[in-house]
Amino acid sequence: MAAAAAAGAGPEMVRGQVFDVGPRYTNLSYIGEGAYGMVCSAYDNVNKVRVAIKKISPFEHQTYCQRTLREIKILLRFRHENIIGINDIIRAPTIEQMKDVYIVQDLMETDLYKLLKTQHLSNDHICYFLYQILRGLKYIHSANVLHRDLKPSNLLLNTTCDLKICDFGLARVADPDHDHTGFLTEYVATRWYRAPEIMLNSKGYTKSIDIWSVGCILAEMLSNRPIFPGKHYLDQLNHILGILGSPSQEDLNCIINLKARNYLLSLPHKNKVPWNRLFPNADSKALDLLDKMLTFNPHKRIEVEQALAHPYLEQYYDPSDEPIAEAPFKFDMELDDLPKEKLKELIFEETARFQPGYRS
């Protein structure tokens, strides 16, 4: 834990890192770190609560700039109880001085990944967590956004079992017609939660990839272990087919990539493993919904509104309290091709509203 900075004593240090967030945020305490930044909790002297502050230093890398800009653009436009918001952003007053960006968010005690390492969940908890994931996802999908990296560590939890989806750095506007060349190379989302079509096709992607990830998360809540822990690309596919069985001819016809289709045709026939054999203690309604989410063919996979209306979630289902976005989200430009200098300018502009004396 960093010592509390005395008023006016300059930035606090946390594990050798400068955290320049005073005077409003003090009493910093280390939480963890990701690929390009550290997260601390801090005391907000204005709202009198502890908050989470993520320090991001992305400006050396085009990919990190892209992810940072995506996350900020999306989260500043989203407003939903099951999606983490941005409360404040701290950065230098000029673009030349801006080396880091500090993002202030609600402090959540833990995440689903940490929880599943230590606790076996009751059916009631599984049901409530799944409902909140789908409630947040309904809003995301209504904005025409794909999260693309749903996994237990991106689901934040607090002691009252509130759940918030975080990390929109890989999110995209849904565009089933656009052929994202190089899709697989830039697709760094965790393999275990990846839909089979991501490994088999490169053309376009749809909201059904997020539903697949939610199915993987439900299976993990039922058993405290990942359902498809593939060691590499082909191993991942083999794990999936080992449980779902061989795809039907109709399902194979959806695979545009001939090499991928021929690979699947070359494999020995596998039978589907019954879900109640894998999860003998699970609620039968939970397994019915799991089956509809972990469907090989993305066109037959359940959609988020149908999933919310499934009998497993009937005690929570309330369409009048499951809000959607006001308007579909649009990125003005494809960020993939922009140089990091341009992305830095866009991050600077996007964060201006939090600067003292800002006038829109």
Score class of each variant (00 low, 15 high):
Ala2Leu: 02
Ala7Phe: 03
Gly8Met: 01
Ala9Arg: 11
Glu12Gln: 11
Glu12Ser: 12
Arg15Trp: 14
Arg15Asn: 05
Gly16Met: 06
Phe19Pro: 03
Pro23Ala: 11
Tyr25Arg: 08
Leu28Asn: 00
Tyr30His: 00
Gly37Ala: 15
Met38Asp: 14
Asn45Cys: 13
Val46Arg: 04
Arg50Phe: 09
Ala52Leu: 02
Ile53His: 12
Ile53Trp: 02
Ile53Gly: 11
Pro58Val: 13
Phe59Leu: 15
Arg67Gly: 14
Ile72Ala: 03
Leu75Tyr: 13
Leu76Ala: 07
Arg77Ala: 03
Phe78His: 04
Arg79Phe: 02
Glu81Thr: 05
Ile83Asn: 13
Ile86Trp: 15
Ile86His: 10
Asp88Glu: 14
Pro93Arg: 00
Lys99Pro: 02
Val104Ala: 13
Val104Ile: 12
Gln105Asp: 14
Gln105Ala: 11
Leu107Cys: 05
Thr110Ile: 12
Thr110Lys: 06
Lys114Cys: 08
Thr118His: 04
Leu121Gly: 07
Leu121Asn: 01
Leu121Met: 14
Ser122His: 06
Asn123Glu: 08
Leu130Glu: 02
Leu134Asp: 09
Leu137Tyr: 06
Ile140Asn: 13
Ser142Lys: 07
Ser153Phe: 09
Leu156Trp: 03
Leu157Ser: 03
Asn158Ile: 15
Asn158Val: 04
Ile165Phe: 15
Cys166Ala: 09
Leu170Gly: 10
Arg172Asn: 05
Val173Glu: 15
Pro176Leu: 11
His178Ile: 08
Thr181Ala: 00
Thr185Asp: 12
Arg191His: 06
Arg191Met: 09
Tyr193Met: 03
Ala195Tyr: 02
Pro196Asn: 10
Met199Phe: 10
Ser202Phe: 10
Ser202Tyr: 11
Lys203Leu: 08
Ile209Val: 06
Ser213Thr: 06
Cys216Tyr: 12
Arg225Trp: 01
Arg225Thr: 01
Gly230Pro: 02
Lys231Asp: 03
Lys231Ile: 09
Lys231Gln: 07
His232Pro: 04
Leu234Pro: 04
Leu237Arg: 08
Asn238Lys: 13
Leu258Gly: 06
Arg261Cys: 10
Tyr263Leu: 12
Leu264Met: 15
Leu264His: 03
Leu265Arg: 06
Leu265Tyr: 09
Leu267Gln: 15
Pro268Tyr: 02
His269Lys: 09
Lys272Ser: 10
Asn276Val: 08
Ser284Lys: 09
Ala286Met: 01
Asp288Arg: 03
Leu290Gln: 14
Met293Pro: 04
Lys300Ala: 04
Ala309Trp: 02
His310Met: 03
His310Ala: 03
Tyr312Glu: 06
Leu313Trp: 06
Tyr316Asn: 15
Asp318Glu: 14
Ser320Trp: 02
Ile324Asp: 06
Glu326Trp: 08
Leu335Trp: 03
Lys340Val: 03
Lys342Pro: 02
Glu345Asp: 15
Ile347His: 11
Phe354Ala: 03
Gln355Met: 07
Arg359Asn: 00
Ser360Tyr: 15
